[in-house]
């Protein structure tokens, strides 16, 4: 296992590098914008009434320190890293003085709960159906599901989302129009609340699964129809090996290797999907938070959310990289 240890170290190094570079780029891009959050706050404060210049100067200094915008860009950059390493993204501007980290912590479970679950369900279902469809080529039911998946796939996600919303929340209102849970409930760990959360998540999850399923289905089916022509599959069939075993251990097992990479990439990218999903379904996650932050010019919040998504994408890739040698023995770990 010496080789594997080295491999882990190497991947960890890459992870740190990617996160560092990604966050640095985000930092400099946001600081290139002409908006100065300190001045924005001051003008907002000044708009309430006449304030003495001394008071404004003091406010400016306090805010500078609070926002980490003292000194030149390099000094700010150093302060920024010092804070980030402690998990501190500074206060949000639009919800001043609530810290950005608290806003994110509040929104993150919603996004992760909905999108990670939906992505994984779509992945599992798509792979199982695609694998079966690729292996049992002549099965009519599986052929039909292939046509369905292929028909659904090219429809833009927001159209699927709106159609579901119109059909099942307006025309035939069996699901709620928006929100993450019933308005008059307080977030708590009890059955009523959890059921309400599940109930509210059905439509957004369904939209994500319907659209996500298609690409996994087609990818897996294509992979499987290639793999069934491989010598080791044909040989196992000649050997009279149990068909279900061939499908699971020979065909699917080999197709899983590239599909895992795909899963990692889409898990890392859930924050992209979050924006549209959460806007359409009025879901209280990171996506809604990001859209609000952009509208409000709340750049510390934007920076915080971006940082979180960079770290999670890199982490997803890292986890898959670490799992890869276990999945495919041919991957060189040295």
């Amino acid at each position: 296992m010496h080789g594997y240890g080295q491999y882990i170290l190497k991947r960890l190094g890459q992870f740190v590098l990617v996160v560092f570079v990604g966050i640095s780029i985000t930092f400099f891009v946001t600081h290139l914008t002409p908006i100065d959050p300190v001045e924005t706050t001051i003008s907002a404060a000044a708009a309430f009434g006449s304030t003495s210049p001394e008071a404004i100067a003091m406010l400016r200094e306090t805010l500078r320190e609070l926002y980490g915008t003292e000194g030149n860009v390099i000094q700010q950059y150093v302060t920024f890293w010092g804070r980030i390493l402690q998990g501190d993204f500074g206060p949000s501007l639009s919800a001043f003085p609530t810290p950005v980290s608290e806003l994110i912590a509040r929104a993150l479970p919603w996004t992760i709960g909905l999108l990670v679950t939906a992505t994984i369900i779509a992945w599992v279902l798509g792979n199982i159906l695609g694998g079966l469809a690729g292996y049992y080529r002549s099965n009519v039911l599986l052929k039909m599901s292939g046509v369905l998946a292929m028909g659904l796939h090219p429809i833009p996600y927001y159209i699927v989302a709106f159609v579901l919303l119109i059909l099942f929340a307006y025309v035939w209102p069996i699901f709620p129009l928006s929100g993450g849970y019933r308005m008059n409930l307080a977030p708590r760990w009890d059955a009523t609340f959890i059921l309400s959360v599940l109930y509210h998540s059905i439509l957004p999850a369904l939209s994500l699964i319907l659209v996500g399923l298609g690409s996994w289905f087609m990818g897996m089916r294509a992979l499987v129809s290639n793999i069934v022509t491989e010598d080791y599959v044909q040989y196992a069939e000649l050997g009279g090996v149990n068909r279900r075993r061939i499908l699971s251990r020979y065909v699917m097992r080999n197709a899983l290797v590239p599909q895992m990479t795909g899963l990692a990439m889409s898990l890392g990218a859930i924050f992209n999907g979050a924006i549209i999903t959460e806007e359409v379904f009025g879901y209280p996650g990171i996506g809604s938070l990001l859209v609000d932050a952009v509208h409000a010019g709340d750049y510390s919040l934007v920076l915080g959310i971006t940082t979180i998504s960079i770290v999670s994408v890199a982490a997803a890739v890292l986890i898959i990289d670490l799992a890869y040698p276990l999945l495919d023995p041919r991957v060189k770990v040295a």
Binding site: D231, Y235, R253, N254, V257, L327, D328, P329, R330
Partner: peptide, 9 residues
């Protein structure tokens, strides 16, 4: 026969 064994097992 070189490729008749499942590469991942």
């Amino acid at each position: 026969s070189m490729n008749v064994l499942n590469p991942v097992r």
